[in-house]
């Protein structure tokens, strides 16, 4: 009866298939028992189907998640260890000791060594925990702050909403990386400061989205039904608003996480992020840039590590939020 309206809205719940005219294969037992039942207009619960690229991406993310947990355990050396020159020569030969820096991959260092002669693989594995750990905690912090304030703005009335929104606009108008630079050069760079700073900077964009979703859900009929029942505000937030925000915001979380990884790597690249000798992927690129002209792979490995993770997350996000537009447009003959 109303395919047109069906196909126009509703990004992630219903498939863009004009659901009302489809006789879905799961018959819902009707109320009566007459021959002409009302046809179920409900699509079966929608599962996200991943493309092949999406499945590979999930594998990549899973791999890095494992490395966050086990990386330091399985790393051949400690991240700060300088490899012994003796390792690089055949025992008993008379060759002079070689340089230890920027060594190509070998049985001693599977991914070669960095500018100080440390094992790149070990530093990548330790760095996974630092880079991903800091980014993940920062993103969670951004969500905690952003969603809390966003919901407050959505339900707190016009005055609170305008105040929060204007202040948030002001913060958003500051370039994130400059904001990070100014604060860190003022108060120094420790990991807790890095996390707090990143979390707060990215809370402003989370706030905007959470507020928008919150406002949408607040005017929905089911919230109105809860209000007219006399439910308190906490029940409405906890049972009506939050459960409906989780799915759409999950994709945003992925995107935000990528931005945070890039931001933290950027800071590290500028020398203001994670401080040596701790390894993190962004600073590893910067430290080893000097090896680039000589064909060292030390700066490329961490760069590649960042790229695999962020590209993989973005691919999953793309798969999850793939929408109907493409399918209709494909029929434009």
């Amino acid at each position: 009866m109303s395919e047109l309206s069906n196909s126009s809205t509703d990004g992630n719940r219903t498939a863009p298939t004009g659901s009302s005219d489809i006789d879905h294969a799961n018959p819902v037992a009707g109320a009566g028992s007459s021959a002409f039942e009302e046809l179920p207009d409900a699509p079966p619960r929608r599962k996200i189907r991943f493309s092949i690229a999406g499945k590979i991406a999930m594998g990549v993310v899973a791999f890095w998640a494992l490395m966050v947990v086990f990386g330091p355990t399985i790393a051949p050396y400690h991240e700060a260890d300088f490899l012994d020159e003796a390792l690089f020569i055949v025992p008993g030969s008379d060759d002079p000791y070689p340089q230890t820096d920027f060594q190509p991959p070998s049985g001693v260092a599977y991914l070669g060594t960095d500018y100080l002669g440390r094992d790149t693989l070990s530093r990548i594995l330790y760095g996974a925990r630092t880079t991903i750990g800091i980014s993940l905690i920062s993103t969670f912090l951004a969500y905690l702050v952003g969603v809390t304030l966003g919901i407050m703005a959505a339900i707190g009335g016009v005055v609170l909403d305008s105040i929060l929104s204007r202040v948030n606009d002001a913060i958003l108008s500051m370039p994130t990386i400059m904001l990070g630079l100014v604060v860190i050069s003022a108060i120094g760079s420790t990991i807790p400061i890095l996390i707090m700073l990143t979390g707060l900077i990215y809370a402003s964009s989370v706030f905007r989205i959470a507020r928008a979703f919150g406002l949408d859900i607040m005017v929905s009929d089911f919230v109105e039904a809860a209000r007219v029942r006399g439910e308190g505000i906490w029940w409405i937030i906890g049972r009506e608003i939050l459960p409906n925000m989780i799915m759409p915001m999950a994709t945003d979380f992925g995107l935000r996480f990528v931005y945070v990884i890039l931001f933290i790597s950027g800071l590290s690249f500028l020398g203001l992020g994670v401080q040596p000798p701790q390894s993190d992927w962004g600073s590893m690129v910067r430290e080893n840039l000097s090896g680039l002209p000589y064909g060292a792979i030390a700066p490329l490995v961490p760069a590649l590590a960042i790229a695999t993770l962020t590209i993989a997350i973005n691919m999953i996000v793309d798969d999850v939020s793939a929408h109907s537009g493409g399918k209709l447009a494909a029929r434009m003959i």
């Binding site: 790597s265 690129v285 790229a307 962020t310």
Partner: peptide, 13 residues
């Protein structure tokens, strides 16, 4: 997708 996922210092480098 690849380009927005990698840090810009990587592109520059």
């Amino acid at each position: 997708l690849g380009l927005i996922s990698v840090p810009e210092f990587l592109v520059a480098t």
